[in-house]
Design a protein around this nucleic acid. Structure first.
Length: 260
DNA sequence: ATGGTTGGTCGCCAA
C-alpha cells in the first residue's frame, strides 16, 4: 500500500502535475494540501477518469485538503473536534488498510510571536488532544501532511540561521514532540538518516537551485504503521520545472510505502 | 531588516 502527501499549492493550477504524480507513483491514497478550491469546483471528473475518487474539505482561496483513492476510503472525517479555527479547511481523515490517514495542513505561523504564530500553537494543542484521544482508543494511524515544522537540524539547510525562526522554533518543536509522545514516529527517518533531504523550497531567491530547503512535509506513524512501513521517498524531481508546461508546487510529494 | 516568487483574485493577502 502506497500513500503520498503533497502540498500542491492550488489544485486547479497543478491538475496536470497531479495526474502525472498519480500515473508515475500509482498511490493507493494521495493526501493533498492547499487545494485552494471550493468543494463544488473540485475537479472530480478529471480524477475519476484515471480511477481516483476524492473526498474533499475545501474553501475559497485558502487552505483546502483532500484525499484521493482508487481503492475506497472508510469512515471519512472532516476536521476534528474542538478545532479553534474550524472555518479553515485544514484536516480530513479516513481509514484505509487498517490505518487512519489524517491529512493535515498546519497553520504556517508567518513569524515567531505574531498572532498567527500564537494561533498555530493553540491549533496544534487542540489537534494533539484529539490525536491523543484516538490513540487512547487504540487507533492505528498515519498523521501526514504539511506540518510547517522542520523536526531537527538535518531538516534545515542553515540550522544556525533558522534556529528560533518560524518552522524551526522551540515552541513548534514542543508541539511536534507532544504529538510524537502519543506514540507516533517520523516514518521518513526510519529509512533515511542523512541531513539535507528537503520537501519544500521557497519560490523566492532561487531557493531550489541553491538547495535552500526545509523538510516540513512529514508522515508520522503509530506502532503498526511503523512496523509495516517498508520505505519512504521524497519526489524531488517533481519540484523541478522540467519539461512540464505547468510550474511546480513549492513542495515535493512525500511517498510512504506499507506492507499489506 | 529586507527581499525575493507564486497563487487567488483584481488590490492586495498569504505563503
Amino acid at each position: 500500500m502506497r500513500a503520498i502527501s503533497w502540498n500542491v499549492n492550488s489544485l486547479r493550477t497543478r491538475l496536470e502535475r497531479v495526474l502525472g504524480v498519480l500515473e508515475r507513483h500509482q498511490p493507493d491514497i494521495l493526501c493533498l494540501q492547499e487545494t485552494k478550491v471550493t468543494n463544488d469546483q473540485f475537479p472530480h471528473a478529471a480524477l475519476a477518469e484515471v480511477g481516483y475518487k476524492a473526498v474533499v474539505h475545501g474553501q475559497k482561496t485558502y487552505n483546502g485538503v483532500a484525499l484521493l483513492s482508487k481503492v475506497g476510503l472508510e469512515d471519512v472525517q472532516i476536521g476534528f473536534p474542538n478545532d479553534p479555527v474550524e472555518a479553515e479547511a485544514r484536516v480530513i481523515s479516513a481509514k484505509l488498510g487498517g490505518l487512519r490517514f489524517i491529512n493535515l495542513y498546519v497553520i504556517n505561523g508567518k513569524e515567531v510571536g505574531c498572532d498567527k504564530y500564537v494561533r498555530k500553537m493553540g491549533w496544534l494543542d487542540a489537534l494533539n488532544q484529539w490525536i491523543g484521544e484516538l490513540r487512547a482508543q487504540g487507533e492505528e494511524m498515519v498523521v501526514l501532511g504539511d506540518f510547517n515544522i522542520a523536526p531537527d537540524d538535518r531538516d534545515v539547510y542553515d540550522p544556525e540561521g533558522w534556529r528560533g525562526k518560524i518552522h524551526f522554533s522551540e515552541e513548534e518543536h514542543q508541539r511536534l514532540a507532544a504529538m510524537q509522545a502519543h506514540g507516533l514516529e517520523d516514518l521518513y527517518r526510519l529509512h533515511h538518516q542523512e541531513a539535507g533531504l528537503f520537501s519544500w523550497w521557497d519560490y523566492r531567491g532561487g531557493a531550489f537551485p541553491r538547495d535552500h530547503g526545509l523538510r516540513i512535509d512529514l508522515a508520522l506513524g503509530s506502532p503498526e504503521a511503523v512496523s509495516r512501513c517498508s520505505g519512504s521517498e521524497i519526489d524531488r524531481e517533481e519540484r523541478k520545472k522540467g519539461t512540464w508546461e505547468a510550474k511546480p508546487s513549492d513542495h515535493a510529494p512525500v511517498i510512504v510505502d506499507f506492507q499489506e
